[in-house]
Simulated assay, not measured.
Amino acid sequence: MSSSTSGIKLDQSTRARIKQAAAALDRTPHWFMKMAVLYWLQRVEQGSTATEMLIDGDIEADARINSVLGRQKLLSID
């Protein structure tokens, strides 16, 4: 099985939190991040929406910042 690296940008605080969480589980940060991605991927594949997966207070801010459709609408207005 071939694999490649896919990177995400994380601030230092988030990286430290991942390292602590992984250590608490006696796992590597790589394992922790991979399991997180696989968990969310499975939820989406089972039909969950972003609204269902986010905490109520985070929905509006997340949609404003991360919605691909929302960003496309903003770009088409200009």
Rank of each mutant, 00 (worst) to 15 (best):
S2P: 13
S2E: 07
S4M: 09
S4G: 08
T5R: 09
S6P: 03
K9I: 10
K9F: 11
K9Y: 04
L10E: 03
D11Q: 03
S13E: 14
A16G: 07
R17T: 04
K19C: 11
K19Y: 06
A21R: 07
A21V: 04
A22Q: 03
A23Q: 05
A24F: 00
L25C: 09
D26Y: 03
D26R: 13
D26P: 04
T28G: 07
T28Y: 01
T28Q: 02
T28L: 01
T28P: 05
P29S: 00
P29V: 04
H30S: 15
H30C: 07
H30Q: 14
M33R: 12
K34G: 12
L38W: 06
Y39R: 10
W40D: 12
W40Q: 15
W40N: 12
L41R: 09
L41F: 10
Q42A: 15
Q42N: 15
R43P: 04
V44N: 05
E45Y: 06
Q46F: 12
T49H: 02
T49W: 03
T49P: 00
T51N: 11
E52C: 03
E52R: 06
M53P: 05
L54W: 05
I55A: 15
D56W: 06
D56E: 15
G57Y: 06
I59T: 01
I59D: 00
I59H: 00
E60I: 04
A61C: 02
D62Y: 14
D62S: 14
R64Q: 05
V68A: 08
L69N: 10
L69Q: 12
G70I: 05
R71H: 05
Q72L: 14
Q72P: 00
L75V: 02
L75C: 03
S76Q: 01
S76P: 01
S76W: 03
I77P: 04
I77L: 07
D78C: 00
